[in-house]
Design a protein around this nucleic acid. Sequence first.
DNA 1: GAAATTTGTCTATTGATATAGACAACTATA
DNA 2: TATAGTTGTCTATATCAATAGACAAATTTC
Lengths: 248, 248
Amino acid sequence: MTGLASSIERRNGVSLWRQIADRILQGIASGDFAENAALPPEVALAERYGVNRHTVRSAIAALVQEGVLRAEQGRGTFVLSRKRLSYPIGARTRFSTGLQGQTSERHIALLSSSTEPAGRRIAEALGIAKGAAVIRLETRGEADGHAVSRATTWFDAKRFAGIEAAMAETGSITASLKRFGINDYLRHSTVLSARHADADDLAALDLQPGAIVLVTVAVNVTLDGEPIQFAESRFPAERVELKLSAGD
Amino acid sequence: MTGLASSIERRNGVSLWRQIADRILQGIASGDFAENAALPPEVALAERYGVNRHTVRSAIAALVQEGVLRAEQGRGTFVLSRKRLSYPIGARTRFSTGLQGQTSERHIALLSSSTEPAGRRIAEALGIAKGAAVIRLETRGEADGHAVSRATTWFDAKRFAGIEAAMAETGSITASLKRFGINDYLRHSTVLSARHADADDLAALDLQPGAIVLVTVAVNVTLDGEPIQFAESRFPAERVELKLSAGD
DNA sequence: GAAATTTGTCTATTGATATAGACAACTATA
DNA sequence: TATAGTTGTCTATATCAATAGACAAATTTC
């Protein structure tokens, strides 16, 4: 994020226009390109990145379609104000309260739910037998009408029968767990990684293909240490950053 | 990470062979493809991902060059054992101790150092005046001879004059800070993001172009809360995951 | 030894990516 | 109004990416 000099790589599997679109996004995030101001003209950008003007235009076209830039013939190309959400992550992470102050409206939409046998990883995380029934929820986190996260969560089907209905109704994990007598819970562990978004995430998060997602894999436990939830969440790296606070 | 069904996207700016290489890496990390065992044959992979066999071959060729796979004519393609390092991150994150047990040898190599005026962000983080002199260190974290991180760190030049020499000698931030009377420090805040690796990171981390890096921006403080270090670290997403432990 | 399986190499074709140049359309400013 | 600066459109060309098919080379299995 710190405007270090770096150039563009060719024949990598990643097209130049996408690399340049990434760089422009970084530039906006790092303050190199101010919001609500004009981007340098296309010829200047082309020279700066060492590519043809048409290649820069492809990158800009992608970002215009993505809603990050607005191009006006004769005037210039402008940076729309769309701040990166800062998503706090720690022992007491909650979707809704975490984004307080940054957005006016947020909730979790239930995309689908199913019951399936637990795989090895999920069984271990939840402390149940491999093959035991688990409920799988596919959800999307929304803030001010924008998709900011996409998650897959698993619950022990025996312990949390019907939680999908509670989720659909309340739009909140915390509220749904209350119906099962859980008034508080902690994040036990979180593992972080990153990858290219797959087709499912692209559609659900309204991303351009090739976008990067931050991935968190987390286990939530009760205050007694009983595991209740296993979740994999994906965040669009271009719109969200994760913030760890000390002592959390 | 959780073997969810997902397909490949076309005309995205990211070539199919790179997307498939990413998927194979994920498959190895998630256990879909066992280490030291044979990958499914090329025709099977082509069918699974819905692409031509030659496209799969391009992906495999990239991973072979990257040292992840080994192809043997007539026998098959094998997964070399190269586990993803799990890098713990929390209030007491230390490079060396964090990787204890996962690697036998680790240290930080000093690539270069310079003195420069502090920018706005760095000045704010370190609590000094904008434009005041700061020492910038470019370092590479190495474990068992493999590059696992690439960092840029800034120190107040007045307070830590000569720290570059200490770093070059000791290969450790913790040891270097001890020479300045700092026996303990905490990670005050960490912000996480992800992006495509730039040319500098590609070279320093020995990555294939197009690779993704996890980025952490952190401020370290003394036990009194005095900020001492501002750092941006990059981790290759294909080789490292970040692990947050509760109560850290 | 023969057959089946698997990776390696070659040719050919199509569409996407990137470069190059020229000019039109629009805006702001002298 | 004229001029300079900027985005938009068009044509052309070369290279990369992806598909398709055929066959060679090496290994394992029967």
